[in-house]
Design a protein around this nucleic acid. Structure first.
Lengths: 356, 356
DNA sequence: TACGCTTATGTTAGCGATAAAGATCGCCTT
DNA sequence: AAGGCGATCTTTATCGCTAACATAAGCGTA
């Protein structure tokens, strides 16, 4: 592709002098001797263009190194093939997997995801959303059901498909795909009780804005309460390496409350840290103490013992959300809306939850 | 923010009937009784607008829930505040950290990163790049120095700042920020030799397209060769949980070549797996066998023993790259170009590389 | 031969914003 | 009192592309 034009070495400190203004359709049109419209048709594979012209145009376009200007295209056609994806974080393993699911589906469509990160901060979420909506995307996939009033208003007013993901415990603006974290918490509590554990500790994060962790915790305590049991102790962390924090917290909580016989971690990473700590200390797992985490991250496969956990269906959530957007933006009629998909996470007992 | 307008509950299955067409500057202009231009000025904080008008416009805009159309704005002003960030993967811990560094810097500017993922696939990279360039971003940050000819041509022709990150071993299109992986491999080899290890095994990934891993390997073997030593055995993996693969590979290589006294892993995750395996087996580390990985991921902090590794300066690479783009797009003169920043990774000997 | 029909291409009029230059108005200066 | 000036706003002309309609040429057929 236009190799010849640019073989010169880049001078050490200056950008290669490139005073030519960016190429437009007109340049290609002139180079190939047809109208701009025809070039546009060729480049988008639209309408009838003779094979001969098509080839001529493609060649000219390649020759020049023309890259269409989607900004102008989008403005003219009132169509933008972008999907805004708004998530709290990229660094905790769970969202990258959701992204993978989204990509998997969108790859088969003309749509393209654009990611925005909020750091679990509602103000940032609002800003990111505003920013993204100002590009008039074809749809929005956004994590969680909790948003500021302004954010909700924007989502509703945008007039595009909106899918809220990860969580189904609450009222969605439009569609939603996820699991019930409250239910997930309850189910884990039931499994723990059924296994005969009674002195249960909880270890989680300090983030009051991680609503899904909160809901799991609520579901968890609720199910315990139903059997007349209360959490015996709890421990929270913030920042730092989750694995290391898991160790520290486990040490601290066991020192403070040695009679604990089960530790429920709000995510797998700290759970793994806890597991490593127990093994180091020669604490028998799951005999003396049982452990469980949440998420079903791949990492767990490599641990000395398999941590009990619950799969959060991350990739499938991504896939389902993308499918909703893709379908609705295909049939451009004001058709669907309000889809609600609740997936069911399964407990993976692993080796740290004794069975009976 | 326009709470009153949308308090109605969403009907269960249909999108709220919203036949109003998307809002434009004209709507705000009519609602506030000034020209579109004035509204535009207010919304961008440009030029002189009286306090009274400003307030009136802002109120009307809020009332209506107007979100500016950046597509139109960008076309008119020939300015796009987007920075294309093109990376191979989101799932391996290293790029999210680079992203964090980028965000940190760009947050203080009007620029916004847009991420594209290539999955270490050159064709995909080319496509993603084309797609991104068609939005006419203000700059490109792209991982690696190896790109298809077409991709390189596009980068040069785009006429915008381009920063190639992670790697400095090669010829950059424009600017570049990273570390020398070849050098990193050499340094680790030297440290290993200095510690007295002689039977060295290498464990890595099967990806022929991970050029940085390849260069580390080359540097590594080169430095060994200088001392007349060759790699005694090697093992490669692909796919699956890196931690688990690290275990498996370690078991396999030690079974095949029991006399190995050092294992060099191409990333920390498999290194951690190897470490866990050795500890499980009661192999004395670093006495009987030494271990080292690469990257300096946070995860390592929580392991029973600290894996020797080398920090890849991920966040700093992101920051430096973003700074280059930000600076160049501020002073819009065709100023800089060709910056080259080579960071120096430091060995973190941890507990798995014996000292003498 | 003229008519309709298909296929291939060109023309015109925006899309929704912004840059740049022009219009108003009150107020000060000399 | 005429001119000048700054502050505030409006007008006009794009930006690069595409939808929708218009045109032209070729061909079979009544």
């Amino acid at each position: 592709m236009f190799k010849d034009a640019f073989v010169t070495e880049t001078p050490p400190v200056k950008t290669p002098a490139r005073n030519r203004r960016p190429l437009t359709l007109r340049d290609v049109s002139e180079a190939s001797g047809v109208s701009e419209m025809t070039v546009s048709r060729v480049l988008r594979n639209r309408g009838d263009v003779s094979q001969a012209t098509r080839e001529r145009v493609l060649e000219a376009s390649k020759e020049l190194g023309y890259v269409p200007n989607k900004i102008a295209g989008a403005l003219a056609s009132q169509r933008v093939n972008l999907v805004a994806v708004i998530i709290p974080s990229l660094s905790n393993m769970v969202f990258p997997e959701v992204m993978t699911g989204i990509n998997e589906v969108l790859d088969e469509t003309p749509l393209q995801p654009v990611v925005g990160v909020t750091n679990y901060n509602p103000e940032r979420e609002e800003k990111v959303l505003y920013e993204m909506l100002s590009w008039r995307p074809s749809g929005v996939i956004i994590a969680g059901l909790e948003h500021s009033d302004a954010a909700k208003a924007m989502l509703k007013a945008a007039g595009i498909p909106v899918v809220e993901i990860m969580d189904t415990d609450g009222q969605a603006v439009d569609a939603c795909v996820g699991i019930s974290h409250r239910r997930a918490g309850r189910k884990m509590a039931q499994a723990i009780l059924k296994a005969g554990y009674r002195n249960i500790g909880f270890l989680g994060t300090k983030m009051p804005l991680d609503h899904r962790a909160r809901k799991r915790f609520e579901g968890f305590t609720e199910a315990l309460a139903k059997e007349g049991i209360e959490i015996a102790d709890r421990e929270f962390y913030e920042g730092g390496s989750a694995l290391a924090k898991g160790r520290e917290m486990t040490e601290a909580i066991l020192k403070r409350t040695p009679e604990l016989d089960f530790l429920y971690y709000s995510n797998d990473m700290i759970g793994a840290g806890g597991l490593l700590f127990c093994l180091d200390q020669g604490i028998s797992v799951p005999g003396q103490i049982g452990l469980a985490g949440f998420n079903g991250v791949e990492l767990l496969d490599g641990l000395p013992r398999q941590l009990a956990t619950m799969d959060a269906c991350r990739a499938e959530i991504g896939r389902a959300a993308a499918r909703i957007i893709a379908e609705r933006s295909a049939e451009d009629g004001e058709s669907g809306g309000g889809e609600r998909i609740e997936l069911t996470p399964k407990i993976q007992p692993g080796d740290t939850l004794r069975r009976r």
